[in-house]
Design a protein around this nucleic acid. Sequence first.
DNA 1: GTCTGTTTAAGTCGAT
DNA 2: ATCGACTTAAACAGAC
Length: 311
Amino acid sequence: MPRPGRNTYSDQKPPYSYISLTAMAIQSCPEKMLPLSEIYKFIMDRFPYYRENTQRWQNSLRHNLSFNDCFIKIPRRPDQPGKGSFWALHPSCGDMFENGSFLRRRKRFKVGGLQATDPLAPSKPQDAAHYLQQQAKLRLSALHAAAHLPQMPGGYNLSPVSQPSSFKHPFAIENIIAREYKMPGGLAAFSASGYPLHNQLAPAWPHMYGSGMMDAAAPLSMAPGDYSAYGMPLKSICHGGQTLPAIPVPIKPTPTSVPGLPGLPAHIPAFLANSPQSLSPTSPQTGQSSPAGPGEPLSASAALQAAVAVH
DNA sequence: GTCTGTTTAAGTCGAT
DNA sequence: ATCGACTTAAACAGAC
């Protein structure tokens, strides 16, 4: 594979496989599912390297989407006109990059394989697609609701500073860039908290740390109202060039079904709900999981209740 | 015609 | 050395 011999990194190939790039794109949007064109757009917006030779890498990316079980195709609904289907991450794919390398996974995700993941998540692609579509609905609803929640009941502070252990999906952009990133020369840049130092990485990766990419890593610059119930930015990466978190859904939203959201299971699986049981984020420094605090499911539940109230 | 999606094949590279 | 993950290329079909 040709490596560009340039002095700047902005047009050098990013240290991410197509799988991780695609996962990043999918994770960056609130619905956790994107059409192919939006995945292209996300990658090209963030990585100037991929603004060239589009036919080459886009073919590769499509190949990855079809070939890898960790991506599932979600058909468009009649009210979602457009070309192609939506693509989402399989509910059971978990943290495929637990070894910390976004270029090469330890093991390829396979449907039906042994995964330490959400036991309630469907394994069949069709089931997973339907399941994810419901999840997307719920996320949008919860997002709306969370945006209207100035503060969680019980004194939960929405500030990311006060919730340093907030779980982020392994593919969330803020999570990915927060991991140990070794520069081509072997240099690793970290803050004391394990996050990459903005001013150290920015010159090397202006496409990552330029517009909007560092919102999550540099949250203090944001207004308090820009955060969701999980203390993460509400601005969207995919629909406006800003970052948006995985909106949590409660593991046990209601005793029965959710009014106004037909088809939702009584017990919503923890997938993408930022539950430590379904996902195991790798700590940048220790490689250990960092389970979310006990208060977070409550916040998620509150977000969902507010979502229900909106409907 | 273009875009999307699937499949096959060959080659590279890292891990074991 | 071997295996498996990943990249790239290409052909093809179907949808828009």
